[in-house]
Design a protein around this nucleic acid. Structure first.
Length: 276
DNA sequence: GATGTAGGTGCCCTTACGTCA
DNA sequence: CCTGACGTAAGGGCACCTACA
């Protein structure tokens, strides 16, 4: 069964901030696992895998040998190389040998289908629904894992640490892509607004020039649009604004306000900003 | 203290595979 | 059954950081 975006229940709370705002994950009510998943307590090992029901891991060989060790939590500890499962081939070379079952997961298939000539054919392992769901839950809390967490999660899900690592990496990439798409839409709407405002201002300027050429009307016209900014709250308002602060407003360059996403002459980019 | 090296990790790009219409 | 599109697991390269000699 293909997992689609809707299945992930992914929705993003967005801003333009760089710090990846945590995903607002809406658990798919159809997901059978959603109610069974307990929050993973990062300070302790995973409990049993019983709550995960069936984990097939595509017949992945089982145990990732991952005894908890006090020093494991350090990202730079030597054991992290062991548990990372080897990101690169050289990493693989130094990792998971001997007592760690030949999961190596990356390019292997099930025992009955492999050995096709020893080619470098990488059989792709599909994670089970339960595994994906639990990884999603975990990602909601931490979008990165330290080696200890990675190891514990791998053990709980009966995956290799490398698989967990890859999953998180790909998940971060998907999040970023999604964020980029939404940001792009937001910026497009900003451009539309600005284009529209530009047209309006050019038209207004044209009218002013016309009036200036007609001195008999010059004294009767209403003043052109003036933007003022409250130095206290730094909000921009037009001359008719009923701003209540009792200090002198400071005229500003409206484009500065636009760039800052302020309310300038009816331009409110906050309103364009995508909501989660 | 400055420098070089090795190990670990994240991000990016890409490939290969599974699934679906 | 075939095929193209799409999603995703995984490989490889690179940059960066940290520990250590």
């Amino acid at each position: 069964m293909m997992m689609r975006k809707e299945d992930l229940g992914l929705s993003l709370s967005l801003g333009l901030s760089q710090d990846h705002t945590p995903l607002q994950l809406i658990q798919n009510p159809n997901s059978s696992i959603s109610n069974n998943l307990q929050r993973f307590p990062w300070n302790q090992t995973f409990a049993s895998t019983s709550d995960l029901g069936k984990i097939d891991v595509n017949s992945l060989p089982t145990t990732v040998d991952c005894e908890e060790e006090p020093g494991v939590s350090s990202p730079n500890s030597t054991i992290s190389s062991t548990i990372s499962g080897g990101k690169r081939s050289e990493r693989e070379g130094i990792s998971e040998h001997d007592d760690i079952t030949p999961d190596r997961g990356y390019s292997r298939g099930t025992s009955d289908e492999e050995e096709d000539g020893g080619e470098t054919s990488r059989k792709k392992l599909r994670l089970s629904k339960d595994q994906s769901a639990f990884l999603e839950e975990t990602f909601k809390e931490h979008n990165t894992l330290n080696p200890k967490q990675k190891l514990a999660l791998a053990k709980k899900l009966n995956l290799t640490a490398r698989q967990v690592e890859v999953w998180f990496q790909n998940r971060r990439a998907r999040t970023k892509l999604k964020q980029t798409e939404v940001d792009c839409e937001y910026l497009k709407r900003c451009v539309e607004k600005l284009t529209e405002e530009n047209r309006r201002l050019q038209k207004e300027a044209m009218e002013l020039r016309t009036l200036k050429l007609s001195p008999q009307f010059y004294g009767q016209m209403t003043p052109p649009t003036t933007l003022i900014m409250c130095p206290s709250c730094e909000r921009v308002a037009g001359p008719s604004s009923n701003h209540q602060h009792n200090h002198r407003p400071v005229p500003i360059n409206p484009w500065v306000a636009c760039a800052a996403g302020q309310v300038a002459h009816g331009l409110n980019f906050e309103a364009l900003r995508p909501r989660s």
